[in-house]
Amino acid sequence: MFDSYVFTEGSARNVPTDSGEPAFQLETLITYYRGIPLSMVHAVELVVDGRDAPQSELAISPNGTDWFTLDEATTVTSYRWEYGTPLFVRWLNGGLSGGDHKVTLRLKIRVAYIPVPFGGERTRTVTI
């Protein structure tokens, strides 16, 4: 239902980070119809070429500047992921190697009046 909003086309690339190590980064819109505090992002999963990116190596940012590991994000209530604005997702793995990769992003959020977290997913072929 919200799959069209997951994993923005053309957003995946290797980027430099503050640590000096490159990272693999992509963007997604929210799988919902309003903005939420970042802590209500319930799950972010990245699968590259059939391999799950370790959860401890993923980081997200609602503005492209301030980054949070998934564990940190569980308490981030003062930053909002605004509707119509991308969430940036990074795999802090040194970046992907050159060539084509099959990349899947899965996303779930958690709201009060829907009994289970819900979201969407999208797979794209990414050329580095």
């Binding site: 939420i36 209500m40 569980t74 209530t77």
Partner: peptide, 12 residues
């Protein structure tokens, strides 16, 4: 409007 009562993963 909404009340974000699920703002924390571990409690309402």
């Amino acid at each position: 409007i909404f009340i974000n009562s699920t703002i924390y993963r571990n409690r309402t």
